[in-house]
Design a protein around this nucleic acid. Sequence first.
DNA 1: TAGTGGTCTAGACCACGTG
DNA 2: ACGTGGTCTAGACCACTAC
Lengths: 248, 248
Amino acid sequence: MNLRPGADTGGQLPLYKEVKRLLTESLAGGEWQPGVALPSEAKLGERYRVSIGTVRKAIDELVAERIVVRHQGRGTFVVGHNAPRTLFHFFHIVPADGTKLQPQVELLSFERAKAGADSAMRLNIAPGAAVFMIRNLLRLGGKPVELDEITLPAERFPRLSEKVFRERDSTIYQLYQERYGINVVHSAERLSAALADRASAKLLGVAAGAPLLRIRRTALTYHDLPVELRTSLVNTAEHEYFSDLGKS
Amino acid sequence: MNLRPGADTGGQLPLYKEVKRLLTESLAGGEWQPGVALPSEAKLGERYRVSIGTVRKAIDELVAERIVVRHQGRGTFVVGHNAPRTLFHFFHIVPADGTKLQPQVELLSFERAKAGADSAMRLNIAPGAAVFMIRNLLRLGGKPVELDEITLPAERFPRLSEKVFRERDSTIYQLYQERYGINVVHSAERLSAALADRASAKLLGVAAGAPLLRIRRTALTYHDLPVELRTSLVNTAEHEYFSDLGKS
DNA sequence: TAGTGGTCTAGACCACGTG
DNA sequence: ACGTGGTCTAGACCACTAC
C-alpha cells in the first residue's frame, strides 16, 4: 500500500482496484452480511491506508455492479435478496402490458442426482458430482407461466432437503443467502425458442407443441463463481422477457 | 456555472450532470462526429468553467453508457458503428458454441407504409405517419438464421430509397449514422417465442410450425429518442440469444 | 449535533501514444 | 518532448439521516 500521490503501480494493480479486491474478499468471506452497512468511507480509508477518494472509486465500481448501494446520510449497504426491487434484477418476465408482478412458486419435485458433463462444466465441479435437481412452477397473477429446473452443487448446499426448500418463508435466492451464506450477485442468460412437450404443456396450460421461451441461466456469487444453473420454459403468450441492457 | 468548491446545487442539478447534459447536447447536435476525439478534458474544463475532476465525472457516465470511449494517451472518442466490436452491442445472436460471427444481410423488400397505432406510439410519431418497412434475411456462416422487419419514421430518413439502402457498403446502423447523422446508441428489447408461418419457415429453411425466437427492439439515439423498430425472428436450433447483462 | 455519503476543486505524478 | 487520459491525494462544503 502506498500513500504518495500518483506513485506506485509498480505493484501492477491500481490502488483502487486493490481496494476493490479487498472489499470483495471481505464480502465473499461474509465479514459484512447483506443488508448491513459497510464501515464508513473514512474508516475504510484508514483501514486500507488510502485516501477517501480512492475508497470512493473502488466503491463506485461495486455500486455499478449492484453489489452494494449507497444511501446518503446512512451509509453503504451490501445488496441482498430482501428488497423486492432486487428480485427483478434476476426475474425478467413481465406481462405484455408492462406491469411487474411478484411470481408465486410451487415446488414440483426435489431430487438428488449426478452432474452431467455440461452441468459440471458450467458449475465448475467434477462430472458425476452430487447435485440437487429442483423443479418449480411459477405463476403470475394466478396463471402458470414458467417452469423452472434448478441444478445446485450439493457440496455448497449441505443438508439441503425438500423439507427445507419447501418450508422456506422467502425467495429462493434469499434461502441461499440466509442459510448457506451464498449471495447471488450476477447472472448470465442464453435464450432460445422451443416447443412444449406433453408434460410441460400440461403444467403450463398450453397445447403440446406450443412455442415456449427457453432461458438458461448461470447464477454467480462474488468472484463470478457459479452457484446455480436454471433452465426456464416460459409461456410468452401473455408475457415477455425484458432485456434491460446497459444504460444507467 | 459555479466554481466555488462544494457550493451551488441551488441550480438543482449537480454540476457534472449539467456538464454531461451539455456534452450530450453537443453530441446530438453533431458537433463531434462518431470516431472523432472530443476536446481534451482540460479544454472541456475551461469551456464549461469547471475543474477537470468534474469533467471526468461527466465523461465517466458517458463511458458507462458506451456513448464515448477513452484511450489513454490519445483522447476520448465518440462511439460510432465503424468498429466491429460495437456491432455486438446490438446483435446478440451467437452460435451455440459461442464463436461470434459477422452476419450477412440480404434485402428482401423495401416499402413505404403508414405507421400503425403501436408502431407510432413506440416511435413517438403520429399514427398514420409515413414509415419505411424493410425486410432482411440474415445469414451466419452462410446459413439463414434471422428474419428482420425494420420500421423507420420517414421524416427522419429523407430521400431514403431501396437503391440507397441496397447499395450501402456498410452496416445498417452505419448508414443511419453517415447519411442521416443518426447515431444509434442504445436499444431496448423484449423477447418471446413464436411458431414459424409458412413464409418465414421457407426463408429460414425450417419446417412450418418450428419454434422461433421473436425479438422486438426499439433502437434509440441520444436523449433516448426512438429512431427504429425492429422485429426479428430467429431460428435458435443452432444459435442462441446472449443476454450480457450488467457487470463491467 | 454528529456522522454519513455527495459534490467540487486543485494539484501532483504516472502511463501511454505520437512525433 | 509533448499532450492525453489514469491514478491518487487533500480538503472544503453540501445534503441527508439519525439521535
